[in-house]
């Protein structure tokens, strides 16, 4: 089936024991867009992305990426997607360059091509100086960057990034941003999760808001934002945390008096 959607999710469920992590998601993500999946911690973003990328088996539901079913047609899907998961290790006892070489060759790219692309990616992501250092000695920002490089190496059609900016310094964040913007400008799709609204607002043209395992709103940035002043405001209203005040219990805090 030919489709314009990059990702089509239908009736996706996942339970961990008593807890429902994802409670029936139906979602269609348009191709060629910079898509943000936003939500508070524990909303089910990582679980959803893991299921969409084939790293976690859903209890129920189906996922299609560029028209191919993730679970029935893994050959077509795995070659077309790039993944940067959150909370999973890399092969950290390889150097940055070795990791890229390993990852690219596992995907069946010719060795010379892998080395060429790795050199360029290391250069663009500002990792050339640390390319022979073991990844275990990398900082958080460097790990995210080398993970991104590994996810981009085979030139996927859809890129899934789980919290790519979490714990990343501003310089690395700007570098990552530049690479991703260039990548989407060529017609590829980026799906990334975050709980930093300002970031999503400045980067994305399409947003899906998640809370408690469900999609609360989705659409273009303008549609989701609606009447609210900012995405942050709209988001707080959507997840029902808008009116909460910090309270008067901390009235002693600040002001200099003991």
């Amino acid at each position: 089936m030919v489709s314009t959607a990059a990702v089509r999710v239908q009736g996706l469920w996942k339970r961990f024991g008593q807890q429902v992590a994802v409670a029936g998601i139906d979602l269609e993500l348009p191709a060629g867009k910079f898509i943000g999946l936003v939500g508070p911690n524990g909303a089910g973003k990582t679980t959803t992305l893991s299921m969409v990328t084939g790293l976690l088996r859903p209890d129920q539901g189906s996922v299609e990426v560029v028209g191919h079913d993730v679970w029935r047609d893994p050959v077509a899907v795995k070659a077309r997607i790039g993944v940067l998961p959150e909370g999973l290790r890399l092969f950290e006892r390889l150097s940055g360059r070795e990791l890229l070489g390993y990852s690219g060759r596992l995907r069946g790219l010719p060795g010379a091509e892998v080395d060429k692309r790795a050199t360029q990616l290391l250069d663009v992501l500002d990792l050339a100086g640390a390319q022979h250092k073991l990844v275990v000695d990398y900082s958080t920002g460097m790990r995210k960057k080398i993970g991104l490089a590994a996810a981009l190496l085979h030139n996927p059609e859809v890129l899934f990034l789980d919290e790519p900016f979490e714990g990343v310094d501003p310089v690395s964040a700007q570098t990552i941003r530049g690479v991703l913007e260039r990548y989407t400008a060529s017609g590829a799709t980026v799906v990334f999760s975050s709980h930093v609204m300002e970031l999503v607002e400045s980067l994305c043209d399409w947003v899906a808001v998640m809370a408690a395992g469900r999609i609360r709103a989705h659409g273009t940035l303008a549609e989701v934002r609606g009447e609210a002043a900012s995405l942050q405001q709209a988001f707080l209203e959507l997840v029902g945390a808008g009116g909460r005040d910090t309270g008067s219990n901390l009235d002693w805090l600040g002001g200099g008096a003991r």
Partner: peptide, 15 residues
């Protein structure tokens, strides 16, 4: 022995 880095292997095994 791969630890959770096994995901890197898993994403490249499709058959």
């Amino acid at each position: 022995q791969d630890t959770s880095a096994f995901w890197m292997v898993a994403t490249t095994i499709s058959s």
